[in-house]
Write a protein that binds this DNA or RNA. Sequence first.
DNA 1: TTCTGTGAACGGATTCACAGCA
DNA 2: TGCTGTGAATCCGTTCACAGAA
Lengths: 227, 227
Amino acid sequence: MASQIPEVVILRLPLYARTLAALRDSGQEVISSHELGGKLHITPAQIRKDLSYFGKFGKQGRGYNIKRLLEELQQILGLNREWSMALVGVGRLGRAIIGYGGFAPQGFRVVAAFDTSPELVGTQVEHLIVQDIAELGATIKEKSVNIGIVAVPASHAQEVINVLVSSGVKAILNYAPVVVKVPEDVRVREIDPVLALQSMTYYIKKAKERPAEAATRSRQKRAALSS
Amino acid sequence: MASQIPEVVILRLPLYARTLAALRDSGQEVISSHELGGKLHITPAQIRKDLSYFGKFGKQGRGYNIKRLLEELQQILGLNREWSMALVGVGRLGRAIIGYGGFAPQGFRVVAAFDTSPELVGTQVEHLIVQDIAELGATIKEKSVNIGIVAVPASHAQEVINVLVSSGVKAILNYAPVVVKVPEDVRVREIDPVLALQSMTYYIKKAKERPAEAATRSRQKRAALSS
DNA sequence: TTCTGTGAACGGATTCACAGCA
DNA sequence: TGCTGTGAATCCGTTCACAGAA
């Protein structure tokens, strides 16, 4: 029963959490769904409905206590702990991922890096020693890794993901430009800047072809902008 | 009139194009909506409906000619040309973006890089000389840049995007973890691996709390898997 | 008043189902 | 027989609108 929460809702929660964290750091204590919606281009009703799946966090007439709501969201999303991740593929992209400073402050840590290349295995990249992919299963158990990051060429992504999945990983951040097959209980998120670009070019092209009505286009649902 | 094509459809087209390109390279000549759907976890009906917004590209009883359909999609998306991009923010992330090998083969080229730091301006990064952001407007016109890439800290993203927009850029790839405000006729795509991770942790956490029904969860629409 | 929480109404994307062509 | 193209039906997320608490 209960909890069949739409996936889109889950995708928006981290956005709320991020924004609330920034507001908290700026010293603000309370926010209304209207004001939060203004910042995120989301309607106030949407935000209230999303939150209502998880409980009643607001006060009528006032809004939401930022600190309180943030803590609730972190609890819901599991952000009040550290998550260990294993990276596969220590090429140029993989190295950039290891060096990316955005993960650690949010509690995500790359604790192991794997590759197949004999030249790479054994070498040090930042704080990690590159391991052979044969050791993946053992290391994942040993270091309680929950998340895999795939940064290998598209042609090898599926096999790498098979190894991750058979080692028990349930969440994969996939930088390889392919849609992969995974069991029902494994989540994959694709990070692909090229796909993002290729959908934007459609709109640039269209606007150039018919410049007159450029602004008529429907955008994502129009946010009720605050005052 | 006409063309109010849902944005989700446009987001799927590059996926189709990518897959068709791989099939073409593998020598396959024809594909059915059923087979293509199997590779992408998309229902055959969805694919046929998506394509029907743009024309009739298939042959009943046979399927789609891969080369032909790919060319059509490239035409529709504007992928049959080069696109010039300007990068703002030459920190660690910015440098990784400049060095990323995935853009060029798809016709996307970073032709200028900007920063505000006096230490960086004038230095060379790969094939580019870092320019002061004050030169952005002029360079964008000069080099016919259509796309901006933002790789600055969240706190500066909005102002950088304001500059890009006022220089005429209509598409922005935003690596900064903030939702920014842009005019109706400007497209923004966020690239944020942390948000992607933070929504997956929800499911990992949930599965651990109620392991019994882990596999019961509804996934994204179940694809009718091929044979 | 102000703003939340929520059932009901709505709207739009997905899926169905079938006519029709190869 | 096989598979496309597409109106119709369905499903599901979004928005509405209002009761009710502060």
